[in-house]
Design a protein around this nucleic acid. Structure first.
Lengths: 188, 188
DNA sequence: GTCTATACAGAGATAGAC
DNA sequence: GTCTATCTCTGTATAGAC
């Protein structure tokens, strides 16, 4: 991928995080990326192409920025999940943009494949961590890693959207998530 | 509110559920409502007015359609939550439209107040049900009704969005939710 | 590869009759 | 209150020079 493409995609994340997919205007994207609209069309063909590429890009960012210093698996698990609920520009941008793409996928089936892949990757990363923790003895064997991972990541998304829509304060969101992790990992 | 207004708003829910907020075209709305575009502008002033009213309308619908035949509190709780994850046209429409509303609120702060109110109502309804179940002895007293309600409703929203975006099959979503309810209501 | 300038379509909004 | 007809503007996309 050329430098220009990444430059435009980085700008796309910012613009989408600010105005939403719904509010994405090619001209504004061009301004944000400091290039002409024509160049954007040259690289991405059309608006749908821009969106597809932006999704891939956000996807890629989302997969990588969650790495966390290695301590014990259970702590890493908590940190990985909590990291999505942090008020830093990078996380906020990514999280908003990611939410937008999810929402958009409800109306654009062509976006779904890559969305599904990323979600599955995230789920199985979390599930793997749970299994590690089980091996280490910090989590009970009775816990179902797959289902637990699916629930926790879905909860993160739900909390995250409430945060961004102003329905839920961030500290409360983190608190609720911590409670859920506690509950999920402490078997009956 | 006049009949015409409600007629148009009912159509708006359908159109938004189908195309999203961004995909809402006044002309299409007019066709769906079987009126002229001019009439819509007459009643709602401009596109923003249409949207505001539509979101209020969705809000209102969302508050009412979750009533459930009275059995014991715990069962009603499960049914109220599971009801959001059903593949009937009405639920699907409402749920998609509601998701759109939430997503849109991230970029339109003026929508947040009514959104927050509705969410809080939902939360406290669920919390009340949990307290009832505690009184009835079906749920342990150690459960925190407020936090549990917040987590469960947020999870429903997360699962719901995954369902609509094609990331998660509906039966699986229901299964995960049931599991979460089980976990939340069965204290350590 | 990248720009400036521009064509073109589609959607929001209004005028004016009934 | 409601319609038909139409105006205007915004945003997508392309042509063509460099």
């Amino acid at each position: 991928m050329s430098d220009r493409r990444t430059q435009i995609m980085e700008a796309a994340v910012r613009v989408i995080a600010e105005d939403g997919v719904r509010g994405l205007r090619v001209e504004k994207l061009a301004a944000a990326a400091e290039v002409s609209t024509a160049l954007i069309y040259y690289h991405f063909k059309d608006r749908a192409g821009i969106l597809r590429a932006a999704l891939e890009h956000i996807n890629h960012r989302a997969q990588t920025y969650t790495d966390v210093p290695a301590t014990n698996p259970r702590t890493r698990l908590e940190q990985m999940l909590l990291r999505e609920l942090q008020d830093t520009p990078e996380v906020r941008q990514n999280s908003i943009a990611w939410g937008e793409l999810r929402a958009t996928a409800a109306f654009h089936p062509d976006l779904r494949d890559s969305l599904r892949t990323t979600t599955e990757t995230w789920n199985s990363d979390i599930a793997a961590l749970i299994r590690e923790a089980q091996t280490a003895g910090t989590v009970a064997d009775s816990v179902d890693p797959t289902a637990t991972a699916e629930r926790l990541t879905a909860l993160v998304e739900g909390l995250s959207e409430r945060w961004h829509s102003g329905t839920l304060a961030l500290p409360r969101a983190r608190q609720l998530l911590t409670g859920a992790i506690e509950l999920e990992l402490t078997s009956p």
